[in-house]
Measured scan of single mutants.
Amino acid sequence: LHIEINVNGLRIELHNVSEELAERIREILEKVDDREEARRLAEELIK
């Protein structure tokens, strides 16, 4: 499954994740104000 999410102008592509996991990642990242911090957090979440 390939999912693309957009959060605060940051486009993140997720591969091989469930829709539920992608939604949780999006919800978490929406709470982060700083774009660079959101990017770093996204990288950690999808490892």
Rank of each mutant, 00 (worst) to 15 (best):
R35F: 10
E37V: 08
K31E: 12
R35N: 10
I12H: 02
I46P: 00
N16R: 03
N16P: 03
E43M: 14
E43V: 11
A38F: 08
R40G: 03
E20V: 08
E27M: 08
L21K: 02
D34I: 03
R35L: 15
R26A: 07
G9L: 01
R39V: 14
A38Y: 04
V17F: 09
E4A: 11
G9R: 00
V7P: 02
E13L: 08
L10F: 14
G9D: 04
E30S: 13
G9W: 01
R39D: 03
N8V: 04
I5P: 01
E4P: 03
L1P: 12
N8Y: 00
V7Q: 06
L29Y: 14
L10E: 07
L45P: 00
E4C: 09
V32A: 09
I12M: 09
I25V: 13
L14Y: 06
L41I: 13
E27T: 07
A22G: 04
E13V: 13
L45T: 05
V17W: 08
L29E: 00
D34P: 02
E13Y: 11
S18V: 04
L10P: 01
E36M: 07
E30N: 13
E4H: 11
R26W: 09
E4S: 14
A22K: 04
R26M: 10
E19D: 10
E37W: 05
E43I: 13
I46G: 02
I28H: 03
N8T: 04
E44R: 02
R40Q: 10
E44G: 04
L10Q: 08
L1D: 10
E23W: 10
E20H: 11
A38I: 09
V17S: 03
E43H: 09
V17M: 10
L41G: 01
E30G: 08
I12E: 01
R24G: 05
L41D: 01
S18F: 04
I3E: 04
L29N: 01
E20F: 08
N8S: 07
I3L: 12
L1G: 12
S18G: 07
K47V: 13
A38K: 02
I46T: 06
D33K: 15
G9N: 03
D33V: 14
N6R: 04
I25C: 00
I3K: 05
E23P: 00
E37C: 07
L41Y: 04
E27K: 10
E20M: 07
R11T: 14
A42E: 01
A22T: 04
K47M: 13
V7A: 07
V7I: 14
R26G: 02
E37N: 04
R24D: 03
A22Y: 12
R24E: 07
E36T: 07
R26C: 03
R35G: 10
L10W: 13
L41A: 05
E19K: 14
R24M: 12
L41Q: 12
L10H: 15
I12Y: 12
L45S: 02
I28C: 02
D33Y: 15
E37F: 05
V17T: 06
N6W: 10
R40E: 06
K31H: 13
G9V: 01
D34W: 03
L14E: 00
L29V: 05
R26Q: 08
I25T: 00
R24W: 08
E20Y: 12
E27P: 00
E37P: 00
E23R: 11
H2E: 08
L21Y: 06
L29I: 07
R24S: 09
V17C: 03
R26V: 08
L45Q: 03
L1F: 11
L21V: 14
E23Q: 13
H2V: 15
L1T: 13
A22D: 01
H2L: 11
R26I: 12
L29D: 00
E43N: 09
I25Q: 00
E30I: 12
L14M: 11
N16D: 11
D34V: 03
E36Y: 06
R11G: 05
K31N: 14
N6I: 14
I28W: 04
V32Y: 13
K31Q: 13
G9Q: 01
